[in-house]
Amino acid sequence: MAEKHKPAPMVDEVSDFEVLEVAVRELAIEKGLFSAEDHRRFAEFAHSIGPLPAARLVAKSWLDPEFKKLALEDGFTASKEVGIDWLNPTGFGTPSDYCDLRVLENTPSVHNVVVCTLCSCYPRPILGHSPEWYRTPNYRRRLVRWPRQVLSEFGLQIPADVEVRVEDSNQKCRFMVMPMRPEGTEDWSEDQLTEIVTRDCMLGVALPHPDRKADDKRPVHKAANPVHGH
């Protein structure tokens, strides 16, 4: 009976890669290459990078055709103009990623979406850490083969006459999507436009919308059975 009702484990099994990361990290700390405090600071920094610089890159491109040309031809140089130096993104002296940024332009006839089937290659210096779902085998395996179904699960229906172009990021190029500027944003400033270019729009699983901002207030649902006296 007790066996039958054994609760599910709170934490799923740890992957081989996580074990490897911990082992290498502990060895590096033991050898004095960096301290545990250095590691924590770096992790904190890495987790705090948001998609904001990339959003500004898109907003600038919407407003300035010359900058757009630069962004599409040379993402590395364009990144510098929004404050991201791929050679030294952390300020800790570590180039933490490959540096060949490619910006994929959405057009009325092409919709781009990014995946990495091999692991989770992601333009971290400019987009921050990848979302959890981006790293799951579910997304990685299915997006390349059933892209429209997977996009539908994100609530995005792409018309049949638009080419869905999946970019499987498997080498040293890093990719982000430049969505189309939505209607209803005429006369908007660069700052206003930056606010509506959310992370998911730059991965290709969503489209920007004039009413939806990255820092919108999250809805608050009141507890159905509130605990009294607390």
């Binding site: 390349v144 083969r145 892209p147 049949a160 080419e163 869905v164 172009r165 999946v166 499987d168 990021s169």
Partner: peptide, 20 residues
């Protein structure tokens, strides 16, 4: 996409995939 996955629907014949 049709070149990679034979069952890819004909109605989405324009869909593509890029990799390196």
């Amino acid at each position: 996409q049709k070149e990679l996955w034979s069952e890819y629907p004909d109605v989405y014949a324009n869909d593509t995939l890029q990799t390196e």
